[in-house]
Deep mutational scan, measured.
Amino acid sequence: SDYEVNVNGIHHRFHNISEELIKFIEEALRRGEDLREIIKKVRELLG
């Protein structure tokens, strides 16, 4: 049904976003950045 496609589409989009965010955060932590600064950047990215 349309509803299922829609829900799956939304889930898929969020899954991709969270994968990208996790990579972004892991790389920043590897560079020794402060978690609070990383979260601030993530918030800015998400608008």
Rank of each mutant, 00 (worst) to 15 (best):
Y3V: 02
S1Q: 12
G47S: 12
R43I: 07
V42H: 03
R30Y: 15
S18R: 08
E27F: 15
L35S: 04
E37D: 12
E19P: 11
N16G: 13
N8Q: 07
I38Q: 01
H15S: 12
A28L: 14
D2N: 05
A28W: 15
Y3Q: 01
I10C: 06
H15E: 15
N6Q: 08
G32S: 11
E37Q: 12
I17C: 02
K40F: 15
R31I: 07
I10L: 09
A28N: 11
L35N: 02
G32Y: 06
H15A: 08
L45G: 06
E20W: 15
R36A: 11
E44H: 11
S18E: 03
H11R: 14
N6M: 06
E44T: 13
R30S: 10
F14Q: 00
N6G: 02
F14Y: 02
E4M: 04
F24T: 06
H15L: 09
V7Q: 14
G47C: 05
E37L: 14
G32W: 07
I38F: 04
F14C: 00
E27G: 12
N6T: 11
N8Y: 00
L45H: 08
E26L: 14
R36G: 10
D2E: 06
K40D: 11
I10P: 01
F14W: 15
D2P: 02
E37P: 06
L45C: 03
I22A: 04
D34S: 07
D2Y: 09
E19M: 08
H12I: 14
E20S: 11
L35D: 02
I25F: 03
K23Q: 12
L46N: 10
E26P: 00
V5Q: 00
H11Y: 15
L35R: 02
R36P: 10
E27S: 14
N8G: 12
V5G: 00
N8M: 03
L21P: 00
L21H: 06
R13N: 14
H12S: 02
E19G: 09
A28S: 11
G32F: 07
D34M: 10
E26G: 09
N16Y: 06
L45V: 09
I39C: 03
R31T: 08
N6A: 06
E27K: 11
F14S: 00
I22P: 00
K23F: 13
D34I: 07
I17Y: 01
E4R: 01
G47Q: 13
G9F: 00
R36D: 10
I25S: 00
A28E: 13
K41R: 13
D34P: 13
K40Q: 10
H15R: 13
L35K: 02
I38M: 04
R31N: 11
K40M: 14
V5F: 05
S18C: 02
I17D: 00
N8D: 09
L21E: 06
L45Y: 10
E26C: 07
L29R: 06
G47F: 12
S1V: 15
Y3A: 00
K41A: 12
H11A: 10
H12R: 02
H12M: 06
N16W: 06
G47T: 11
G32A: 11
G9R: 01
A28M: 13
E27T: 14
H12Y: 13
V5D: 01
I38L: 10
L29A: 05
K23D: 08
E26D: 12
R43F: 12
K23I: 10
F24P: 01
E26F: 11
K41M: 14
V7A: 07
R31F: 09
V7G: 04
R36W: 13
V7E: 04
H15N: 11
I10N: 09
L45I: 10
L35T: 06
L46V: 14
L45K: 07
E4F: 03
I17L: 08
N8C: 07
R13W: 15
E4S: 04
I10F: 11
V42K: 01
K23N: 10
N6V: 12
G32T: 07
E26W: 11
I38W: 05
G9I: 02
A28P: 01
I10E: 13
